[in-house]
Each structure stands twice: as C-alpha cells, then as structure tokens.
C-alpha cells in the first residue's frame, strides 16, 4: 500500500501534471474562468484518468509489448482514450443523469486533454505495474483537479483587481500558473519515500 500512496502523493503534488509538465494546459486555461465549471472538468479528468490508465496498461502489457507492436502505441492509446471517453459518456448518461449533467459537457473535451495521453505515456516510460498505474492515474488526476480549481478561484477574484490591460485574461493566467508552479516546487522537499516505509517494503 505504501508505494501506492508514495506515487499518489508524488504525482498529485510534487510532479503536478499541469505545473511541472504543462499537461492539459489548453483546457486548463480555457475552462478556468469560473470555479464551478473548473470543478466539473477537474472531476471528469480524475474519472477518465482513473479508468484509461489501467486499460492502457493492460493493452500495452499484453498486446503491444507481447507482440512487439510498440510502434502502434500512440495510435492505440489515443483510440482507447477516445472510445473510453465515448463509452463513459454513454454509460453515465444512461445510469446517472445527475452525474451526466455535471460531467457530461466536459467529457468530449477530455479526449484531447494532454494529461490523459501524457499519463499513459509516462506510465510506459516509468514502467509502472498495474497498481502503480492506477495510483499514478488517480494522483495525477487529483493534482490536475487541484491546479484547475486553484487557478479558477484566483481568476474569479482577480477580475476585480486592477491589472494592466495588456496582461488581462491570458497573460495573468500564465503568470499565476507560473507562481503556482514555484509554490508547488517547494513541496519537492517532501520525501515520498517515507510513505513507502509504511508497507514495510520500502528500501
């Protein structure tokens, strides 16, 4: 359990998808004007990352690697993500109209969110196993969620501030993201290895 907590903490705070890797910046900047929509999109990202990571892991391990089809990785991953999103959309619409109303409009946006594909590609280069991939997906999604609600909350407030006209909107969003990135960097001091000690398997 410890190493999963370790990966979760690391991917959520220290190696934040948005602030350290710039993954999913497009929707992060476009949908962070109000807090409520940012919340919806953030939840949807956690949801989709949590589902696509294990699926892509299984496909990568048992299909791509076993049959030496690694060169099809990009295409298969993106197809899996696109179809998963579509499937999730349909299932959610049928069984949980409430959740659909909250997440529905954001789901199509997520296919082209780099954080989703990025998560799967990082999972491969870092050679996570199935459990670690799930922890990484949930942690990365949670980190993304945190970043977008934080920037949305700040942007809602900053609307009442006197910002130089040329910096209004986008320019300020970039500056704030940079500052948040620096702030999150201070979390690097956390030694995630202590969490690995919980399971007794850590070094």
């Amino acid at each position: 359990m410890g190493e999963y907590i370790n990966i979760f903490i690391k991917s959520a705070f220290i190696e934040n998808m948005v602030l350290a890797y710039f993954l999913g910046m497009c929707s992060y900047l476009a949908v962070s004007k109000t807090l409520s929509t940012a919340f919806g999109l953030g939840m949807a990202v956690i949801f989709v990352l949590g589902i696509t990571m294990p699926i892509n892991w299984l496909i990568n391990e048992y299909l791509l690697v076993s049959f030496e089809l690694e060169f099809l990785r990009f295409i298969i991953f993106i197809a899996v993500i696109a179809s998963t999103v579509q499937l999730v959309e349909m299932v959610v619409e049928k069984f949980s109209p409430g959740l659909y109303a909250a997440l529905g409009i954001f789901l199509p946006l997520i296919t082209v969110n780099c954080a989703i594909l990025g998560g799967s590609l990082f999972m491969v280069t870092r050679e996570y196993d199935l459990g670690e991939s799930i922890a990484f997906g949930l942690g990365g999604g949670f980190g993304w969620f945190l970043a977008i609600i934080a920037i949305a909350a700040i942007r809602e407030r900053i609307r009442y501030s006197n910002v130089p006209p040329a910096l209004r909107g986008l320019g300020m969003a970039f500056l704030l993201t940079g500052l948040m990135g620096v702030a999150f960097l201070s979390l690097t001091g956390i030694d995630p290895a202590v969490f690995a000690g919980w399971s007794g398997t850590g070094e």
Partner: peptide, 18 residues
C-alpha cells in the same frame, strides 16, 4: 524551472498586447 516558461510567455503576451 518549469514555471519560467509560464513567466516568459506571460511577458511575450504582455509585450504583444501592449
């Protein structure tokens, strides 16, 4: 640091829009 990319782009945007 990664954050510097943000600052640099923000400055570009600032200059361009000014």
């Amino acid at each position: 640091l990664p954050a510097a990319a943000m600052f640099v782009i923000a400055v570009f945007i600032w200059i361009q829009r000014a």
